[in-house]
Design a protein around this nucleic acid. Structure first.
Length: 628
RNA sequence: GGACUCGUUGCACAGUCUGGAUAGUGCGAGCGGCUUCGAACCGCUAGGUCGAGGGAUCGAAGCCCUCCGAGCCCUCCA
């Protein structure tokens, strides 16, 4: 694992030094050094200070001296720092060789964390009554990046999208179609999902406020939805599948794909709920209330000071959270699978197979989309409900962390952007609202970014045709949007601003993609494929070795990212790698330097960089064009 | 009222999980760099009581406690 190799070597040798000094059981750190402190650092002497009754400086001195007596291959020397750290300097002749030759392998960056265990990643799960907005995009991109990263970390990943096709939001647009005469054909070529969200949904919910008696119609429609044989349910199926197809277009356009679509209507009709409800009763996880404010309901007891949660109403119907319980249990493979699977009629990009659940047992294939672990990506406003599910699953499965709610903060609109949508917020950011029509759609942001990129690219490449420019603009637009969605920590609110969030400069995807284009250009101009059999010891400039080192850190970044379910780590790695390359590019010429051997070595380095940035970007679903 | 999350330079963030050296980056501001492998770039300068207070520690932006500020959740809504 490249840079990990030198960390391992140092750890082993330090342990040897410790045992020579008859010291044991110290868990010290061995990590990549901060700039200016060698290549690797250890805090070992701080930890021994008390035991040895010596200052960290003195101990660092002793350890370094002893360390240098040992045989080492990847380390040149160990050096005590006056602060007390023990710093190590790499033998770059050896380490460059190791890192750069490994970087040529397809498996570069692969880490054996999952050991081929199965894991479910569920994301997207947007009600099929509207187009995706920028807030949904955060969910989708986080989920997609996590699945890509987990695959790189040796997990078998099943990506699911839960289609809530029988909920209240769907009922609302049905009310619009059936009672307010909304045309089923959108006006002047508008995408159907946008039409349903912008027009039918918003205007129908407006009418509820004007006329509360409409609530009865709404409730009726909702009830009919749950009965699969009703005309309403059949109509709903037509509408929601049209919306879903449009939503998937948006996702696919952003390089997001799935393995299986799970329809809520089918979960309801499968009878999984009554199965799990019996189990809950047996395990005494739900209780029937004979008095109090929840009289006649089945509830889950609140934790500590939390209120009890009703899961079956006194009229016998299940609440929102109740529907999630059988699905969660199904995802973990705790229930007999009632579903059959058929191919989704439209094919995904790259022909990746997409399945959908069906209760129809003819003409279907055997599949298993469950996992030993489950990660559900839902925004953190649902944390309370997800905690209830998590607790239940821990009891069902008898494994603590089998079900993980991966929460993230929402995307809000900046005051300026809200104003362009007609809402005055007095300088404050504001939550989006589908019901109020207060949102920025994913498609419109993509279009804006693409248009902007087309302009930039045309300026630079007047010789290109529009198709070529369009391809580049697509990759840059998708990259920019994806990067913007994951570069912040999951628990930071993203305030989306129609002008400020669409920058193509600084810490953005185009910056990283641009370095890739620079590298590609060098390789193209060199007119040859770099040979791997070169003497890497010719690489000795600081910026060269920094680049080699950053390339070598790929695997460590993947491991960190997978362990912490943090796509941001890969985004930052990509950025660091690009910064490293730009520094190298600024300080060293590759072509026409009059030294064939050095040129060869640098070409190899450029090639390793190009392959590594491509692989790293791929983990966050970003493609870097050859030219831009 | 209770639960959870956040607070680091003018703005937006990284670093906090796993304590240790000189707290990093981008935007913005000021200055400088294309007859050179692509300036969507690079270099330099200015800008920080790490929300406040206390505690444990040889050592805290990081761990524990209290407080303040912001967000969000707490329906027989979804």
């Amino acid at each position: 694992m490249t840079f990990q190799s030198i960390l391992d070597e140092i750890r082993n040798n330090l342990n040897k030094v410790l045992s020579e000094l008859s010291i044991s059981d110290i868990s010290f750190s061995v990590e990549p050094a901060k700039p200016g402190f060698g290549d690797v650092s250890s805090n070992i002497s701080y930890l021994l200070a008390k035991q040895l009754k010596k200052s960290p400086q003195q101990i660092a001195q002793i350890i370094s001296e002893n360390y240098n007596k040992n045989i080492h291959t990847l380390v040149l020397k160990s050096e005590p720092h006056p602060s007390g750290y023990v710093n190590f300097f790499a033998n770059w002749n050896q380490l460059s060789q190791l890192i750069l030759s490994e970087s040529n392998l397809d498996t570069f960056g692969f880490v054996e964390l999952g050991k081929q265990s199965t894991i479910v990643v569920e994301h997207t799960s947007v009600n099929p009554n509207k187009a995706l907005h920028i807030g949904h995009v955060r969910n989708i991109i986080i989920g997609d990046c996590i699945s890509r990263i987990l695959k790189k970390a040796d997990y078998k990943v099943n990506v699911l999208n839960y289609i809530d096709d029988s909920g209240l939001q769907v009922a609302d647009i049905l009310v619009g179609f059936t009672h307010f005469n909304f045309d089923q054909e959108p006006p002047n070529g508008k995408k159907f999902d946008h039409y349903c969200g912008d027009d039918v949904y918003v205007k129908t919910t407006q009418k509820y406020e004007e006329d509360p008696s409409l609530e009865d119609i709404r409730k009726n429609i909702l009830k009919e939805l749950e009965d699969g044989s009703s005309e309403t349910a059949k109509f709903a199926d037509v509408i929601t599948r049209k919306v879903l197809a449009n939503q998937l277009e948006t996702c696919w356009n952003l390089s997001v794909t799935y393995d299986c679509l799970n329809f809520e209507s089918q979960i309801i009709r499968s009878g999984l709920w009554s199965e799990i409800f019996e189990k809950l009763k047996e395990m005494k996880l739900v209780e029937f209330e004979n008095d109090g404010k929840n009289t006649g309901c089945w509830v889950i007891r609140g934790d500590g000071k939390e209120e009890d949660k009703v899961i079956v109403r006194s009229n016998g119907t299940a609440t929102y959270i109740a529907k999630d319980i059988p699905y969660a249990a199904w995802k973990l493979g705790l229930l007999d699978d009632p579903f059959h699977y058929e191919k989704y009629p439209i094919s995904q990009p790259n022909d990746q197979k997409l399945w959908q659940t069906t209760l129809n047992d003819s003409d279907s294939s055997e599949n298993d989309f469950t996992g030993q672990k489950v990660i559900t990506v839902i925004d953190s406003r649902q944390a309370r409900l997800q905690k209830i599910i998590t607790d239940l699953m821990a009891k069902f499965k008898s494994v603590e962390d089998a079900y993980v709610h991966l929460g993230y903060e929402s995307v809000t609109l900046s005051s300026d952007t809200a104003k362009t949508l007609g809402l005055e917020t007095e300088g404050k950011q504001t939550q989006m609202s589908g019901r109020k029509g207060l949102y920025v759609s994913a498609d419109s942001v993509y279009d804006l970014l693409k248009e902007k990129t087309i302009q930039e690219t045309s300026k630079r490449h007047p010789e290109m045709n529009s198709e070529e420019i369009g391809d580049i603009a697509h990759n840059v637009a998708v990259g920019t949007l994806r990067y913007e969605m994951i570069k912040y920590d999951l628990d930071k609110i993203i305030t989306f601003d129609l002008t400020k969030s669409l920058s193509l400069e600084g810490d953005t995807a185009p910056y990283i993609q641009y370095t890739h284009a620079r590298a590609s250009r060098i390789l193209e101009k060199s007119g040859r494929t770099p040979s791997i059999d070169v003497n890497y010891s010719m690489l000795s400039e600081k910026s060269e070795l920094d680049l080699v080192k950053t390339i070598g850190l790929f695997g460590i970044a993947v491991k960190d990212s997978a362990n912490n379910l943090s796509p941001k780590v890969i985004a930052r790695y990509c950025y660091d790698l690009a910064v490293s390359f730009n520094s190298f590019y600024e300080h060293n010429k590759v072509l026409g330097i009059g030294d064939e051997n050095l040129e060869n070595s640098r070409l190899c380095l450029v090639n390793s960089f190009k392959m590594t940035i491509e692989r790293a970007l791929d983990l966050i679903g970003i493609t870097a064009p050859e030219k831009m």
